[in-house]
């Protein structure tokens, strides 16, 4: 009996401690009834970043805000907005960070066009160098050179 009381006391102490703050569970997913619209929604989810996660899209993230964004996108699709309008709206709310496709503006020209420029530029350099080198072939080995070469390979075989 005393032991029970002791445990009970310990339990009381534990229960009067402040309960841990738990995040409310995310709103459940309600897919759209029209399969074409739902497919559009799914495609968009892959392009939208979950802003509180580490490089995940809202399609798979368990975070609350991801669920909210999914709901928002579905609402807007059902309301008849186009994909671009939805994306623009998200950018207005959260900034460029929310989309996985970086914007195309002066600050990102290097990003978008850099690789193609590099490939094209290097290609041009190579073509010019090839032209300049011309097609001069190395003249064939003279007889002396052939002898020296034969000596060299014979030496090598002897050494081995």
């Amino acid at each position: 009996m005393r032991r029970a009381a002791a445990l009970f006391a310990a339990a009381l102490l534990a229960s009067t401690a402040a309960p841990a703050l738990a995040e409310p569970p995310p709103a459940p997913d309600r897919p759209l009834t029209d399969p074409a619209q739902e497919a559009r929604a799914r495609a968009l989810f892959g392009d939208i970043r979950c802003v509180v996660c580490q490089h995940e899209s809202i399609a798979d993230s368990p975070a609350g805000i991801a669920a909210d964004l999914r709901g928002l996108v579905r609402e807007q699709i059902a309301a008849g907005k186009t994909d671009d309008e939805i994306k623009d709206d998200l950018i207005r709310r959260y900034g460029d960070y929310v989309l996985f496709q970086p914007p195309v503006r002066i600050g990102t020209w290097l990003l978008w066009f850099g690789p193609f420029a590099l490939a094209a530029g290097a290609g041009v350099v190579l073509v010019l160098r090839a032209r300049r080198r011309g097609t001069a072939e190395a003249p064939p080995l003279t007889a002396e050179e052939e002898c020296a070469l034969a000596e060299l390979t014979a030496d090598e075989e002897a050494e081995r």
């Binding site: 072939e137 080995l141 050179e145």
Partner: peptide, 30 residues
Amino acid sequence: LAELDRLKARGLLDEAGWTAARAEAGRRLL
């Protein structure tokens, strides 16, 4: 040099190319 001969035998280097390649390689080796 043997490598060049083998490439020629397999048809991956034509006659003129083989002569020129051999010249380049030979001079470099010497």
